[in-house]
Design a binder for these strands. Structure first.
Lengths: 332, 332
DNA sequence: GTTGGCACTCGGTAGGATCGAGTGCCAACC
DNA sequence: GGTTGGCACTCGATCCTACCGAGTGCCAAC
């Protein structure tokens, strides 16, 4: 725990550095509001903060910049989420008029977040496993190929191509559809698909193909990920190499999902630099918030920016968007 | 038209510059295979090529770099698409094992293209307008909300949230589904949706809602766009600012679609720099190829790289991938 | 028409001087 | 004892200069 004055100085350093991206010297801090001591005193305190690991010096005769520990303390103890009026109005307006397909809405949500924060935004869609099935159907596409289509309660669709092996009559397909409907509708897809069966061996063969098709891809890459604002990363960093490696991460949906999930599972709302566990994100910070639909945690929203991000704003934006998105999806 | 020797020199300059990204001097060219004259002669020819607008000099005492006109001549007259063995095997292997959902396959196709070329890849999915409908269905999601689901012949799904205005009985929804099925199945969705009607006013009301919902969003953003390898842009350019503006373009799906469509419509397979018509792409070249399904042109594949891209390779890769993708989608 | 020769250009690099923001330390002060 | 003004010091950034060399344009000779 830092004493009052050290805390004020650390806060001032972080805030200044976030704004200017330049190492900040004792002079600037001494003239900042909230610090009423001379630059010499500030220097002493900053030296102490440095030896405690909250600040670092790029080189001897430069100002200080916050370390990861410094940012962490800032986030945990020195600031609180805050969203300005226009931003919260923007959020309100967005969710008031949001409508249409769920995928479109989630994609638009990423745009909202990048607009609010000017960082890259990620939204992970509600997991399909949990959602109740409203309708299932088998549609013949080609003599030996059918499409299994399940409509979920939230308007999402789960589909799977079924290789039937041999030509199957329309009415067998219809019978299989009926058998599936009977057992699956109203429950979650993954859990109930095993229950469907039929006495007729031809129908049963089709059901078998459907079961395996649904099982194989389940939980694998069924998560829908929406990413937006990757171009903002280029604005946040000087080095092209940094931009490239961060973009590479953002392009890998599976990596992004596990990254966000991991952070949420650790109970964090911010992961700073190495806390992300990914070396290419050493200069990045990730702000996340899970959202709940009908009380159940089903997805995550987040923004990815430089470690010197505007944490109060990002935290507030992500929190309120997650909250609102959950509400919006809960009402159906 | 350039004489033989000027052509050889231009080709050598372009090839060298593509490889090294450095202005190339007369000495290098004179020692290149296919040019048997002294550097002095090369200098004379290069001066001529410059005054004809094929080459440019960054500054007086530097080598030459190709202009857009130089690249254009190179592409049109000095080179032919060529793909090395391993690359064509990669393509073959990919399409031999490609299977599953169409969206997944298209997304994987972008990955194939970035892998082949090391540039950003774009695939525009088959337009839904043309595809024959295999199945339509109305699924109730909430008391006043239904989901219209159409399964298309290629395995794609078109869906639309329907705001019913007031609560509608299950059986009315079923009747509307049946009426839709009757008129729409077998034809293209956009064209046949207007035909569906029913005597019962309650059912007709539902059908009206469906018609407007399908009509409003038709042809708007129904194109599926898949982009991959944006991080490669960062590797191609020095300036972060360039990377940022190109990324901004790639993030706007509508812009990407109209860009590719525009190039294809002009009958080009390559758009170089300002030929793209987009200022931020001044340093980029776009290689595209439309693909056909059952003889009809339904989509486009392309790669976006720096103007100094490997045209022979990119042209060949895009052409063969477009060809194979069309075949793959035609066989159903 | 081609070529070797040559003076010239000019970006890139290296070395050196200077500047100034910022530091650590110390003695004086309250 | 904590705070502060003063001061010598550090070191990156900036600017200048010299220099190098790749490359050019031009010209006279072949």
């Amino acid at each position: 725990m830092l004493d009052e004055r050290k805390a004020s100085i650390l806060r001032a350093v972080v805030e200044e550095y976030i704004q200017t991206a330049q190492p900040v010297g004792s002079g600037h801090i001494a003239s900042a509001p909230g610090v009423q001591v001379s630059s010499a005193t500030v220097r002493n305190e900053m030296a102490a903060l440095e030896s405690d690991g909250f600040l670092a010096q790029p080189h001897t005769s430069a100002g200080r910049i916050p370390t990861e520990k410094g940012y962490r303390y800032f986030v945990d103890a020195l600031t609180r989420p805050s969203l300005d009026r226009t931003a919260s109005q923007q959020v309100r307006a967005f969710f008031d008029q949001a409508h249409g397909e769920i995928e479109q809405m989630l994609a638009d949500t990423t745009r909202l977040l990048t607009g609010l924060t000017d960082y890259a935004a990620v939204v992970i869609g509600p997991a399909h496993e949990a959602a109740a099935v409203r309708s299932v159907q088998l549609v013949s596409l080609a003599p030996r190929v059918a499409l299994f289509v399940a409509v979920l309660g939230n308007g999402a669709i789960e589909k799977r191509t079924i290789d039937l092996g041999e030509a199957v009559e329309e009415d067998v397909l219809a019978a299989a559809s009926a058998a599936l409907s009977e057992h699956v509708i109203g429950g979650p897809l993954a859990a109930t698909i095993a229950l469907a069966s039929a006495p007729d061996p031809a129908v049963e063969a089709v059901l078998g193909a459907v079961r395996t098709a649904v099982a194989t891809a389940a939980g694998d890459d069924t998560d829908q990920v929406f990413v937006n604002g990757a171009s903002r990363m280029a604005a946040s960093f000087e080095a092209v190499e940094t931009v490239r490696s961060v973009l590479t991460i953002l392009e890998q949906q599976l990596v992004v999902v596990s990254l966000l999930r991991d952070v949420v599972d650790r109970g964090l709302d911010v992961a700073i630099g190495s806390e992300t566990g990914m070396q290419p994100l050493a200069d990045c910070a990730l702000v996340v918030a899970p959202y709940t639909v009908d009380g159940e945690q089903v997805g995550t929203v987040g923004v990815l920016g430089p470690t010197r991000m505007n944490y109060p704003q990002a935290l507030a934006a992500v929190a309120v968007v997650g909250q609102r998105l959950g509400n919006r999806l809960s009402e159906g």
